[in-house]
Simulated assay, not measured.
Amino acid sequence: MQTLTADEYAALAERARNYRDARLKTLKKQTEYNPKLGVDALCFQRWQDGGLEERGLVGALISPCALSLIAIPEPEKLQGGPPDTLLLHLPSGRYRLQHCSLDGVAWYQRVILDDLSEIESMQEAAQLAQKLMERLMRPSE
C-alpha cells in the first residue's frame, strides 16, 4: 500500500467537506442521524482494479448516518462519462458501488453500516472505519 501525498489527503478532506455541505440538510432529516458525528474521508489508499479502470483510491466515508465504502477512479481513466455503478474487486470480495455526483469527480459509494447511533465520537467512528478497511483489504478465508 502506497501512502497518499499531502495534496491527495487535502483533496479528500475537501471532498468530504463538499459532501457534508451538499447533503447535511438531508442527513439531518434521517432517523439514523447521529449529531455526535461529522463527515470525514478516512483510510484511503491507492488500489489497482478493473472496476476502477486500473487505478484509483479506495477508502471509507463517515457521515452522521452511515459508514460507506468509497472508490474514486482516476479521472483520465473514465472515458465517455462515469458509469452509474462500479464493481470493485477487493481481497475480501466484490462490491457494487453507486455513482454519486460530487464536484464533477467520479465518486462511488456503498453504504456498509447504516446505523451509527451507538457511536459516541468521531474517534470511535474513525476506529470503526479503520477496522472496516482492514477487513475489506484482507482476503476472505
Rank of each mutant, 00 (worst) to 15 (best):
S63A: 07
S63I: 05
S63L: 03
S63K: 03
P64C: 06
A66E: 14
L67C: 06
L67N: 07
S68K: 03
L69C: 08
L69D: 12
I70G: 13
A71W: 00
A71S: 05
I72L: 10
I72R: 09
P75M: 02
L78K: 10
L78D: 02
L78Q: 12
G80P: 09
G80I: 11
G81K: 07
G81Y: 03
P82L: 02
P82M: 03
P82H: 03
T85H: 09
L86G: 04
L86P: 02
L87R: 09
H89K: 13
H89P: 06
H89M: 05
L90A: 07
P91G: 05
P91V: 03
P91N: 04
S92H: 14
S92Y: 10
S92T: 13
G93S: 04
G93K: 04
R94K: 07
R94P: 00
Y95D: 11
Y95F: 00
Y95N: 08
L97S: 05
H99L: 15
H99M: 14
H99N: 12
C100G: 00
C100I: 05
S101M: 09
S101G: 14
S101F: 05
S101Y: 08
S101C: 04
D103L: 11
G104Y: 00
G104W: 00
G104T: 05
G104S: 03
G104C: 01
A106T: 11
W107V: 14
Y108M: 07
Y108W: 00
Y108H: 01
Y108D: 04
Y108N: 09
Q109F: 02
Q109T: 13
R110S: 04
V111E: 12
I112D: 06
I112E: 08
L113I: 12
L113D: 13
D114L: 00
D115G: 09
D115K: 01
D115W: 00
D115Q: 06
L116Q: 04
S117H: 10
E118M: 13
E118R: 13
I119F: 02
I119H: 02
I119L: 04
E120I: 07
S121V: 02
S121Y: 00
S121I: 00
M122L: 12
Q123A: 15
E124I: 04
E124L: 03
E124F: 01
A125W: 01
A126T: 10
Q127P: 00
Q127A: 12
Q127N: 11
Q127G: 13
L128N: 08
Q130R: 14
K131N: 13
K131A: 13
L132Y: 09
M133T: 08
R135A: 15
R135Y: 02
R135F: 05
R135W: 02
L136I: 14
L136C: 15
